[in-house]
Design a protein around this nucleic acid. Sequence first.
DNA 1: TAAATATGTAATATATTTTTGACATTATGT
DNA 2: ACATAATGTCAAAAATATATTACATATTTA
Lengths: 74, 74
Amino acid sequence: MKEQGELTNQLSVFRAKKGYSQAEVAKRIGVSRQTIISLEKNKYSPSLKLAFELAHLFETGVEDIFQYNLKGEE
Amino acid sequence: MKEQGELTNQLSVFRAKKGYSQAEVAKRIGVSRQTIISLEKNKYSPSLKLAFELAHLFETGVEDIFQYNLKGEE
DNA sequence: TAAATATGTAATATATTTTTGACATTATGT
DNA sequence: ACATAATGTCAAAAATATATTACATATTTA
C-alpha cells in the first residue's frame, strides 16, 4: 500500500514491565523469536492479529503499543 | 502464528456511514479494490498499517473497526 | 572465569497479504 | 431498455510477513 505513515511501537517497554524475554513473548504468543526481534527493531508492520495478541498479552490496547504517525499532517 | 482468536470488522458499516464505495475507499487509502472487498468478507487479517489507515479514514480507532475475539476465554 | 541466558544477524524457505486483470451480477439512473 | 456504477468471483503473480537454522556477541549469574 501507499506509504503514508510511520509505525512505531513500545514493545520493549511493555516487555520489560512484565519481565519477559523475547523468547518468552514469542512462545506465549506462538510466533518465532525472530518475529519479536524484528518487530522491536521496527523491521515491518505486523498483521493485525499479531498486534491484538501482543496487546492481549500485555493487557493493554493495540494503540498503546503501536503508534501510527501520519506524514504531512499537523 | 498460532490461531488464537477470530478477527471481525465493521468496515462496511463505517463505509456506509461515509457513503463511500469500495473503490473510493481503496483509492483514498492507496490499496486495490480487491483488498477492500476481501477485508469486508473477512478473508484475512490485514497489516496493522492498513488497519491504521482505515481507522484514520473513518476518523475512529482501530479497535472500533476491528474486533478480536479470543477463543477459550470468558 | 566459566556456564547459561538473552539479544542480535543473516540467509533461505514458507505462508500470507495484496495486486492485477478479466469477467459476471446486481443496482441505479436516464 | 440502455448505460453506468457498485459489488462480486476467480486465478495468478508480486510483495511482504513469518519461520527456521545456524552462528555471534552481550549480559547475567554461579
